[in-house]
């Protein structure tokens, strides 16, 4: 009995002394990365890898915790935004979070964050090997002759791949029969089972299937041709220059910190990030997974997210799938 009370007294004293500790130089303790998407996905992997390299530079652990849910990763963003802007909380994210605001998930715009962009894998159009189209022109001719005759799989409405499909449709002036899936992996699986004959996902996600000849790549949805292990996948822009009005919409994997965090801390993180991006493991990861590695920070990174926010928000609004008018949020068209 007495022992317990003494123990509690000691605890109380110790607690007040913990309060009295002086502010130490950043980073004095472990950093947390609140990752808005699930474990095992592309954003998760890239973040875990870069965090491990940054941890080496900063000399503390960086823990990655997946806080998923809401719409456009809003639960994780709230979680990250709700913690103090002291540099001990990062938010791991990707381009799709920019939809959270217009979908009513996040009550702020994306300009509350400072972004760090690791990179991303570009999207491409592929068809199943038994499909009759050998080139993108054959595909476009067929769909124009017979609108909605081809089933196209992509992840759910409002995702990056769906938006790429929409942009492609606008650029060529024809419509596919869009079948939404829970994830990119599920849409590719549907291509394997023959449920859809065309998929739009990223090079990284398709790589193994293309190598095995289970998917036939038709065209990249970026302005440049892509060298896939010696095979050149042509850009769709060459044949359909109109696409450049709507594309490219590229995957941007990275993380963010609250904009109101101290500048000194941001500078330190940016330096650590740049060093981490040069690390051999990160470079190898990028190469293996067909990423275009960006390593952007500060204004450059923020500008990219501003543009993504504008494109995603207005596209969703035009589709009638946005809850909140982007205009009221002050998002320029």
């Amino acid at each position: 009995m007495k022992k317990i009370l003494t123990l509690l007294l000691i605890l109380a004293i110790a607690m007040t002394s913990a309060f009295a500790q002086a502010e130490l130089e950043y980073p004095a303790r472990d950093i947390n990365n609140v990752l808005v998407w699930g474990a095992g996905g592309g954003t998760d992997m890239a973040n875990r890898l870069v965090m491990a390299e940054m941890a080496k530079v900063l000399g503390v652990n960086i823990n990655v915790n997946n806080v998923t849910g809401g719409v456009g990763g809003s639960v994780g963003m709230y979680e990250g935004y709700g913690r103090p802007a002291d540099g001990y909380t990062l938010v791991g994210l990707s381009e799709s979070v920019v939809t959270a605001s217009v979908q009513g998930g996040f009550d702020k715009r994306m300009n509350v964050w400072d972004f760090f962009i690791i990179g991303g894998s570009p999207d491409l159009i592929s068809v199943t090997p038994n499909a009759p189209f050998k080139t993108v022109e054959e595909l476009v001719t067929a769909i124009k002759a017979n609108p909605k005759s081809i089933r196209a799989g992509a992840s759910a409405a409002g995702s990056i791949h769906h938006l790429n499909l929409l942009a492609f449709e606008k650029g060529i002036g024809a419509q596919f029969n869009f079948i939404p899936y829970d994830s990119s992996a599920a849409s590719q699986n549907a291509a394997m089972t023959g449920e859809v004959s065309l998929v739009i996902t990223s090079v990284q996600e398709q790589a193994e299937l293309i190598k095995a000849g289970k998917l036939r790549p038709l065209a990249m949805l970026i302005p440049n041709d892509f060298d896939f292990q010696g095979t050149i996948i042509p850009s769709a822009f060459t044949k359909y220059p109109a696409l450049s009005q709507y594309l490219p919409l590229e995957q941007q994997i990275g993380f963010a910190i609250r904009k109101d965090a101290p500048e000194a801390i941001k500078t330190k993180l940016q330096a650590a990030f740049k060093t981490a991006m040069k690390a051999e493991a990160v470079q190898k990861f990028g190469k293996d997974r067909y990423f275009s590695m960006k390593g952007l920070v500060g204004k450059e990174a923020n500008d990219i997210f501003d543009k993504l926010e504008s494109v995603f928000s207005w596209t969703l609004w035009d589709l009638g799938a946005a809850k909140i008018n982007p205009q009221t949020l002050g998002i320029p068209r």
Partner: peptide, 28 residues
């Protein structure tokens, strides 16, 4: 054999494998 996880923990495993530079799929 296809790089498609058969269960939720296998989906995590897919991520872990890729972190270690193993790409599951038809080419594995």
């Amino acid at each position: 054999s296809m790089g498609i996880p058969g269960s939720p923990p296998a989906a995590m495993l897919l991520g872990a494998l890729m972190l270690h530079g193993v790409a599951p799929g038809p080419m594995l």
